[in-house]
Simulated assay, not measured.
Amino acid sequence: MTPRIDDREEVTVDLDALLVAAGRGDARAFERLYTELLPQAHRLALRTVRDPQLAEDVTQEALVEAWRRAASFDPRRATARSWVLMITHRRAVDRVRREQRQRVQAEHEAATLASPGAAPVPQDAVVEDDYRAWQTDRVRTALGRLSALQREAVEAAFYGGRTHAEVADHLGVPLGTAKTRIRDGLGRLRDALEGA
């Protein structure tokens, strides 16, 4: 029986099947996948880049990359949602790094133009190093507050660059267990970092 529009039941969309079909060239399948994942991808990008315009750009770039790479998607290794969000996260981090490099370069050039005969003082580099060390210490302390199982899962996912499925394989646990450990660990990390 086909669900009617006025039914209040939620229709489940098989995102993995849509992405596999998109990998075979089905533009309509990708259009549906795009519609389903756009809000989540945009929220992730916005949380990472913290600029609405950049977040829109990153989201579009990530979804275009997902379309181009759809044929390489393997539903045995990751879900379509985690695969697309991983691409989005990587794009967002790349954009933040690029923006920081451009800002540092512009500041360096401005300092050089302001006093062409003097060697530029790397004050920004010192401040940046101190800030990075402080942030690293905060994250290390927050990671220390996680259970050993949560820390192992979070580190495998974010420092190891593994998908949820790869984390599950690496830890020898079911996919749902790996996802729960990562989710709970990230929640505790967020609480620890916000409280610090």
Score class of each variant (00 low, 15 high):
2 T>D: 09
2 T>P: 11
2 T>I: 14
3 P>V: 15
4 R>Y: 15
5 I>Q: 09
5 I>N: 07
9 E>N: 04
9 E>Y: 07
13 V>G: 11
13 V>M: 02
13 V>E: 15
16 D>K: 02
16 D>R: 02
20 V>D: 02
20 V>G: 05
26 D>C: 11
29 A>I: 14
29 A>P: 08
31 E>I: 00
32 R>I: 10
33 L>H: 06
33 L>M: 06
34 Y>K: 02
34 Y>I: 04
38 L>G: 08
38 L>N: 12
39 P>N: 10
40 Q>W: 11
41 A>K: 01
41 A>E: 06
41 A>V: 15
49 V>C: 00
49 V>S: 07
52 P>R: 09
53 Q>F: 11
53 Q>S: 12
55 A>W: 07
62 A>S: 02
63 L>T: 06
63 L>Q: 00
66 A>Q: 03
67 W>L: 07
67 W>F: 14
67 W>C: 04
68 R>Y: 09
68 R>W: 13
68 R>Q: 14
69 R>K: 12
69 R>Q: 09
71 A>F: 09
71 A>Y: 14
73 F>K: 00
75 P>A: 08
75 P>Q: 00
76 R>E: 12
80 A>S: 06
80 A>E: 00
81 R>W: 01
82 S>K: 00
82 S>I: 01
84 V>L: 09
86 M>G: 10
87 I>E: 10
87 I>T: 08
88 T>V: 11
89 H>L: 05
94 D>Y: 01
95 R>M: 09
95 R>Y: 13
100 Q>D: 14
100 Q>R: 13
101 R>C: 10
102 Q>Y: 11
106 A>K: 15
107 E>T: 05
108 H>V: 15
109 E>Y: 11
109 E>M: 13
110 A>Y: 13
110 A>C: 08
110 A>D: 05
110 A>T: 12
111 A>Q: 14
115 S>Q: 05
116 P>Y: 03
121 V>G: 04
122 P>M: 01
123 Q>S: 10
124 D>S: 06
126 V>G: 00
126 V>I: 03
128 E>F: 00
130 D>C: 14
131 Y>F: 12
133 A>M: 09
134 W>H: 14
134 W>V: 05
136 T>Y: 09
137 D>L: 08
141 T>H: 14
145 R>H: 08
145 R>C: 05
148 A>W: 07
148 A>C: 03
149 L>Y: 12
150 Q>P: 15
151 R>G: 06
152 E>N: 07
153 A>H: 13
154 V>I: 13
155 E>N: 13
155 E>R: 12
157 A>M: 08
160 G>N: 07
161 G>R: 10
162 R>D: 08
166 E>Y: 00
168 A>K: 00
168 A>E: 12
168 A>G: 14
170 H>F: 13
171 L>D: 04
173 V>L: 07
174 P>F: 14
176 G>A: 14
179 K>F: 06
180 T>F: 12
184 D>A: 05
184 D>R: 13
185 G>P: 08
187 G>F: 08
188 R>Y: 09
190 R>H: 11
190 R>I: 04
192 A>V: 04
194 E>D: 12
195 G>T: 10
196 A>P: 15
